[in-house]
Design a binder for these strands. Sequence first.
RNA 1: GGUCUCGUAGUAUAACGGUUAGUACAUCGGGUUUUCAUCCCGACAACGCGGGUUCGACUCCCGCCGAGAUCACCA
Length: 478
Amino acid sequence: MIVTRFAPSPTGYIHIGNVRSAIYPYLLARQNNGKMILRIEDTDRARYVEGATELIEDTLEWLGLKWDEGPIVGGPHVPYFQSERKEIYHAYARKLIESGRAYADPTPPEKIDEYRKKCSQEKVPFLYRNFRPDNPPEWQPGIPLRFKTEPKSYSWHDEVMGDMHTGPEVLDDIILIKKDGYPTYNFAHIVDDAEMGVTHVMRGVEYLSSTPNYLALYEALGLTRPKLVSLPHILAPQGNKKLGKRDGAKSVTEYRDDGVLAEAMLNYLACLGWNDGTEQEIYTMDELIKNFSLDRIQSSGARYDETKLLWMNGQWIRRIFDEQGAKVLYARTQNFWPEVAKDASDDYRLKVLSIIYDRLKTLSDLREMTAYFFADPEIDLDLITNNKFLKKISEAELESLLKIVISKLSSIAEWDAGSLQSALNDLLQETGKKPAELFSLIRIAISFAPFSPALNLTMEVLGREKTLARLNAVARAI
RNA sequence: GGUCUCGUAGUAUAACGGUUAGUACAUCGGGUUUUCAUCCCGACAACGCGGGUUCGACUCCCGCCGAGAUCACCA
């Protein structure tokens, strides 16, 4: 069975740059009826951030990445917090001590710095294994424990990067247990992955360089290596660095609050650095699960492009409306209406959504784009007199045009899109005006917005009373 | 500096020795009775450089250049 894991450290929110290492393990696990484990790597007490675990869980839940084992859901390998697994790491550590592959290192940090400086001056690589203490004491709390490495070459296969090979110069005596008794990442993740039966270790490429050390550790502990999958970085919009919080990388859930749909976020991120070889752009979760494959993960970094994310979000908004219905989309818009819409009925807001949805890039666009449906807009005659189609028409004529429109619209029997459209067509005939002139005038008069849906639809939703009242108000103001 | 990785249009990518180098976003035009958007049509735009191998190289090999990662009691 395939077992994958997402193993973040609770140091803050999950952002665009690191959430992909949760998505791919999830897809792989689901595709193979396997399991994904969520494990919290909280061995660095200094960097621990209160509430970060909840933030991580929230993010995964929003994206629909359900973990099969981990916090909240539990599992056969509890606990899933590394800080609570000390005894396990210590047991493995003792095995290494017994086999002579680990030693307590009492060397003070200042001394180590000295070694490092010396090497740097002599321009030779700094390897701690050249500075092993002569008579290491018995390991006890307060003293760090180091791996006693055996310099040799390693070859391995990375599912993304291909066949890898390194020489002995990259192997060193890495710290296994820190002086505070907590394990380092380097040691803890190996123990946990083995204990938890993880078959595929997926993580960022930054771990590629230390892989030989991990391989040495698997060997010394007699563990079978899992398959290794290095995920390339997501690059910041500017420069060539990986996207990080310093580049203003927003948290994944911040996009949710800005009206991005989980489907779009998942779709965009999954396809950033992976494709199935077809020209498909829009994928549902099920399609991603079905089509995902490790060997089509890109080996180079991919730049984060918010414009494309927003395009994709627009696609998803329309797709949900068209395929799942207006009500399904409407249910997702609750937090995104303008303040003036708070007293409007669901029915009315649903109607507004139905004529505006294909203009949305994010759900929060509703706030800017729909206010005039709920409250009378402020009359701003400059919008009329400066309009490129209307500025040639005299104020007197504008006023009389509006009166003709009002009179016509007052007389129609049924206030629906079809009747309104034929009334508008009649008005074009009667006034001899071009659509650009007459429709612009009406549109601006009832909305005073930079843009709005088709005129007949806007008027239909707005209703007879409000439409006529607004037209009258403008006619008086001119 | 050592080690490792990466290099197709502005961006994300397709191609797995033979194509006018395909697609999408972005940009710029045009169309759908006003606007904005959707939708449709069109345009612009790429194989980092230099050597090989081959009848033929984006694809294979070597060198160079460029970019990145890593060398913590952080993960």
